[in-house]
Design a protein around this nucleic acid. Structure first.
Lengths: 344, 344
DNA sequence: ATAATCTATGCATACGGTTGCATAGGAATG
DNA sequence: CATTCCTATGCAACCGTATGCATAGATTAT
């Protein structure tokens, strides 16, 4: 078997408890003994058995993030990727490990998440809002099990902590950027009416439009879904209408591409005649032609903050609900890079 | 405290060992006792403490995947994403959890990976070839610690198990596809000379070219790095030379875009005058105009296989080295979608 | 000088499951 | 009917670490 705390104790001529105290900086140990023990540990190449430790402490020093393997969205999403890296970074820094686990429940009836929690295998959990089931979250809350939701949960009465980007601010930032580039008739193409983030972005869009006293046509706010075809159809309608916009904010890269292509097809030059902007910075926005100006979020930071707070919950056992909305920033590219400003 | 195995035993009127045996299907237990115990477990809502279990067994039923947080490549890479999902799926199926951990070593001198291993917190590890340090791997091997490398390790004398795509086959498949579309003068634009995968793909390219007795100009194989500018420069040179190719295989999406743009700029129509194909299927290849034909890999499956084998290593304690090279397939899009074939 | 207080350490037990060995009762065998 | 062999279960030790309580010796206070 491997080297145990007892072996170290024997080699240093002390009791196991003393070694344990040195390991954990608990109690008062004399300089001299301390040195002897370190010496012994080095000689024996002692590494504490984390399983035994976790078991004895009743805490494994592990957090988990729930994912949905069958969710094709998450696959392609660099968003998710970066976030995980941020989470790992924060966890690592506090001496926690990160388990990634599928959230669908399995045959035995007990979902893997529940199993991790009840089985004491994790100290806390990060839960994407999209996977959130109301019942599950309340169960967590009743047990006051540490949890942070990634993205704002739609059920507004929940007490859970969460992190998200500030979608309202993002909507405003989008308008403000376009305004600064001389666009005055700004439309919004959303990829879903129900989604909270779209609602919030549109709220921000409205606010900024009103604040700047710009034209606000209700038909400029249109909902479709994320597809090139649908996107083009929507944009075509906009550009064929009486009140033509001179710029558009799109929910995602696909819609932005659709907008660019449709506008071009109709003879608009981009960015001079028509500006296009979208949410989330990705390889597509970077490599499109023209490059697409995007509203970017520091998802790494989002993940880091989420994990940091989760760990605070775990260690301080404080279950006060806590919210963070991260500010976005614009990554400027050619799709809004007007040289000659439109009518001022 | 929570419900323990002893509580269940008491409620069922048996000894803890019997309950344990029921839990693990070990030994022979009478139908009747079994029922009593299940009954008790249900009533008490008993969930075994996994930490205690792991500790007692000396195996946590956890595997890890090493990542490099500071590696910007991995971020954007949907490749990695999908693979992790495949890994999680396989792990989950065998009752293992997956830890994601950064591979850089920290201040204390003991890297996090080593710590996980020595601390008995994981049973096995998946290691991206790109993060592989020779010394580390041999250390693992000396300890015969279960390990599977993701991607073929460059040090050929290593005994480690690994999974990768079959890059040579991929190179051949690329040529064959272009050939079937009527292209006969096929160039290869690589994003790095040293990379093993490029070498292998080029080897496959050569084989297929020779097999089909196509023209093979050495200047058609050119190395650059992954940037639009460099890519365009390389393609320009090719198209301005005496021996002009009529199609090109690119290492990645960026180079493919570069090729498309340069060819277009020179008046070539795509795909009719010039075919473009690249490795890895991504949102960019899908959304480009024209859509880019790509050589796709089932990275989910790659991850699944890797994890599956790792777990086999763990459970059977068989340390025979094992290699898998996954076959790729072509995702056909417009960039090679010639209607009128070239000279046959 | 004695009592009270600290400092530094050891002892014993707990954490929750697992498992080798022992054994009682019943079935099979001679 | 005695012996052997299963079947089903219990006992007790063990996995490696943490920690409350006890205590010996040193120090300080009275």
């Amino acid at each position: 078997m491997s080297v145990t705390i007892r072996d170290v104790a024997k080699a240093a001529g002390v009791s196991p408890s003393t070694v344990s105290r040195v390991l954990n900086n608990k109690g008062i140990i004399s300089e001299e003994t301390c040195e002897k023990i370190y010496q012994a540990m080095r000689e024996l190449k002692y590494v504490p058995n984390d399983m035994a430790r976790s078991f004895a402490n009743g805490s494994p020093r592990v957090i988990a993030i729930a994912i949905n393997v069958s969710d094709a969205q998450a696959f392609a999403n660099t968003f998710f990727n970066r976030m995980v890296f941020g989470i790992e970074t924060a966890a690592h820094q506090s001496g926690y490990n990160l388990i990634i686990t599928n959230a669908t429940s399995d045959r035995e009836g007990l979902g893997s998440i529940e199993r991790l929690i009840m089985g004491k295998k994790i100290d806390g959990i990060l839960f994407p809002a999209s996977l959130l089931q109301r019942s599950f979250l309340t169960a967590l809350e009743d047990n006051s099990f540490p949890c942070v939701v990634l993205g704002r949960p739609s059920a507004s009465d929940l007490e859970a902590s969460w992190v998200d980007i500030d979608n309202e601010q993002a909507g405003q930032a989008a308008v403000n950027h376009l305004y600064s580039k001389g666009y005055r008739r700004i439309a919004f193409l959303s990829n879903g009416e129900k989604e909270l983030f779209n609602q919030d972005r549109i709220a921000g869009y409205r606010k900024a439009i009103e604040k700047r006293r710009l034209a606000l046509e209700e038909i400029w706010i249109c909902h479709t879904n994320s597809s090139l075809q649908k996107g083009r159809a929507s944009v075509r309608q906009l550009l064929e209408g009486n009140e033509k916009p001179d710029a558009i904010i799109c929910s995602d890269e696909k819609l932005a591409l659709a907008a660019i292509r449709e506008a071009k097809a109709q003879g608009y030059r981009i960015p001079d005649d028509f500006g296009v902007l979208c949410f989330d910075d990705t390889p597509v926005t970077e490599l499109a032609e023209p490059g697409i100006t995007s509203v970017d979020v520091d998802t790494f930071e989002l993940g880091r903050l989420a994990a940091e707070n989760l760990i605070r919950q775990i260690e301080r056992a404080e279950k006060s609900s806590w919210r963070v909305q991260l500010t976005t920033h614009i990554i400027e590219r050619d799709s809004t890079g007007r040289k000659t400003h439109g009518k001022e």
